[in-house]
Design a protein around this nucleic acid. Sequence first.
DNA 1: ATTATATCAATACAAGTGTATTTTTATTGC
DNA 2: GCAATAAAAATACACTTGTATTGATATAAT
Lengths: 197, 197
Amino acid sequence: MARPKTYDREEAIRNACEAFWEHGYQALGVRELETLTGLSKTAIRSEFGGKEGLYLEALALYSDAAISSVLAPLKEGGMSQIIDFLEGLVDQGSITSSPWGCLVVNTGIENARIQSDKLHAATQSYWDALESHFAQALDNACARHEIAPDTDTAALAKGLVTAVMGVHAKNRSARAQTGGHALVALMVTYLDSLRTV
Amino acid sequence: MARPKTYDREEAIRNACEAFWEHGYQALGVRELETLTGLSKTAIRSEFGGKEGLYLEALALYSDAAISSVLAPLKEGGMSQIIDFLEGLVDQGSITSSPWGCLVVNTGIENARIQSDKLHAATQSYWDALESHFAQALDNACARHEIAPDTDTAALAKGLVTAVMGVHAKNRSARAQTGGHALVALMVTYLDSLRTV
DNA sequence: ATTATATCAATACAAGTGTATTTTTATTGC
DNA sequence: GCAATAAAAATACACTTGTATTGATATAAT
């Protein structure tokens, strides 16, 4: 039998996710990554396919975690769930609010040059998931007569996604997890105005 | 008398601005910067203070150009000028719309780690300028009875700035200068709804 | 023409990059 | 205890990074 691994795979990916989230991809070297994740250079290479492979795993974890937790309520939810999600982006206690912004937003901006197909696919699928969850919740709201039946839910969902990106960008720029609160308040006001009284 | 410079200073900074805008700061090496700007390594170092110095010049140019051109109409303007500005962010013909997003947004996200005081000051002052221009136009709109007198113009201005960041982030992520159109449409709808009929 | 000056071009440099390779170490079945 | 296995640690490697230095070059006043 072989020497046992000294790391827990999932915990290592979680650590990598946080590390990339905070520092960005390019600015984080493999050697520093070792200490932050508890992985050895050897493990990073053989187990994850090097720095980029680990980054993709981190992105996948981030994405899956968001979809299965904070996005889940939108599937059966309506206007209040959308508002809850938005407010979570700038709430101290929420896991979706962070002074580091959002790993997917950061990736989309920092790595626009690379144009790695895998990277683009990963970020794109995340935004698609967010958009379709918004659209679903809005359609639910329509069906439940929370908002007008002729509301353009598809366009509204797209706009919401971009607003979310703005909140994250602001949070990171301001190094404050409540940085984007003004836009959240504005969007909530707008969504409330759509409600059929 | 000495050998004349082979470059035009302003043109070089313009080129540097475009280069950093497209490729980002970290991903752009000095050697590639030479060919893109027409500057020699020697000039980059002695005339601009190296790569970071040139970056700061590029940021200043970007910021000054925006303030003196596209932000200027907001000073005396009202709701229509705000809407014009927003629509310019995703209009093919506009200089504020770009598949590369916005240099200041990109800087705020990519260089969150560095925390260079100069860098932070440069980006912060840009967002402050945008916010105060929005606030001014909104106050004008109040004074002209375009919107309700009790409108919280300060909060609204803050929200608009974050929305602008979102549009730019989306434009860059989508590599399309119209990427953020849905949020622009949404914000315009909202602003229109504030108008006193 | 000579000289002074400031630029450009080429080279050099130390440090850091991600990756590859080698050596050591920890484990289990025999 | 011994061999087999696979991971960790250490080292090495080729490459790039931003910067520094050196030598050639183009101007204009003398």
